[in-house]
């Protein structure tokens, strides 16, 4: 059995209006039918533009959001064995509490150990993530962004979790610090045998840490494949567009950037058929009507007219 099995999960947020008794006037389809599995010991990367539902998916996995429908099966206690590393190193640490007590929170809430054994554990954790254990009495404001993210990682590791969901763990950090934190996460994985779900919008970071990568668009997974495969042979036009938009550190590669037309449609009333069709250079009539399924073996994609391996999105199509 996989460590985590997500089956057809949907998460809709009601939009309410009214003064006394709120009526529901619409729904945001943040996550709309996502299925995937995470195997023990691997890193699953999830990429997509902001607003595609990847953070909501992460919050469903950690039990922060109750799913609207579908199931999330986890081999273990979700509250205990799934931990989260948050995006904002400033917002995720309570400014009025000392970092020692912040890191000890998981132990306290799960009634683990005595106050003195917790203190020892906190010091060990701080050393493990590269913080000076003597600083446990300090406040978050006395740390830099990178150090705060280490605090967040130490907190996530306190209970020896089986799965760590990292929600854009480095996107708020300086580029120079990003590498340190990403390497720390990779080293910790080797040392402790962790499993990660790694969410980011930065394709190069995801590529660096992930064994497999899932691409999300408007609440759905449009393509999922082992890392190299996805980056070398994208089949879904959206994946190809994302990849071409990312900066490429290879001067020999032709720089044909595909610029997507228009904005991401509203998740309140997503387009019919394939959700990508209003912006897709390859869209045809069928895409407007029939929703493509996520099919394939190992490398799955949801597209009626996928790119052939090696095919590039043509600029002519893009300019249409």
């Amino acid at each position: 059995m996989s460590l985590l099995e997500v089956s057809d999960v949907r998460k809709y947020f009601p939009i309410k209006s009214g003064i006394f008794f709120q009526r529901e006037v619409g729904r945001v389809h943040a996550v709309d039918g996502v299925s995937l599995s995470v195997e023990a010991g691997e890193t699953l990367g999830v990429v997509g533009e902001s607003g595609c539902g990847k953070s909501t998916l992460a919050r469903c996995m950690t039990g922060l959001h109750e799913v609207t429908s579908g199931t999330i099966a986890f081999d273990g206690d979700v509250r205990r064995d799934v931990q989260m590393v948050f995006q904002d190193p400033y917002g995720s640490l309570n400014p009025r509490r000392r970092i020692g007590s912040i890191i000890a929170d998981p132990l306290v809430i799960h009634r683990e150990g005595t106050p003195s054994s917790r203190r020892g554990r906190v010091r060990d954790l701080m050393a493990l993530v590269g913080l000076n254990p003597e600083h446990y009495n300090r406040f978050p404001a006395e740390f830099s962004g990178g150090q705060r993210q280490r605090v967040g990682i130490a907190r996530a590791l306190a209970l020896n979790p089986r799965l760590v969901v990292c929600d854009e763990p480095v996107s708020a950090l300086d580029v120079s610090i990003q590498a340190q934190v990403v390497n720390l996460l990779k080293d910790l994985q080797t040392e402790l045998g962790l499993t990660y779900v790694f969410i980011a919008h930065d394709l190069s970071v995801v590529r660096y840490v992930s064994d497999r990568v899932a691409v999300m668009y408007l609440g759905k997974i449009v393509e999922i494949a082992p890392g190299e495969e996805l980056y070398e042979r994208p089949r879904h036009p959206y994946t190809a567009a994302l990849l071409s938009a990312a900066s490429v550190a290879d001067p020999d590669r032709p720089r044909d950037r595909v610029v997507l037309r228009g904005d991401v449609p509203s998740p309140i009333s997503p387009p019919s058929g394939c959700r990508f069709h209003p912006r897709c250079p390859k869209a045809q009539e069928r895409c407007r009507v029939e929703e493509p399924l996520l099919l394939g073996d190992g490398h799955k994609w949801a597209c009626h007219f996928p790119l052939e391996p090696g095919e590039r999105l043509r600029s002519a199509e893009v300019g249409r």
Binding site: R59, G63, R79, Q83, F86, D105, H110
Partner: peptide, 8 residues
């Protein structure tokens, strides 16, 4: 959210 996800 961090403490809520722990079941606080």
């Amino acid at each position: 959210e961090a403490v809520r996800s722990l079941g606080a």
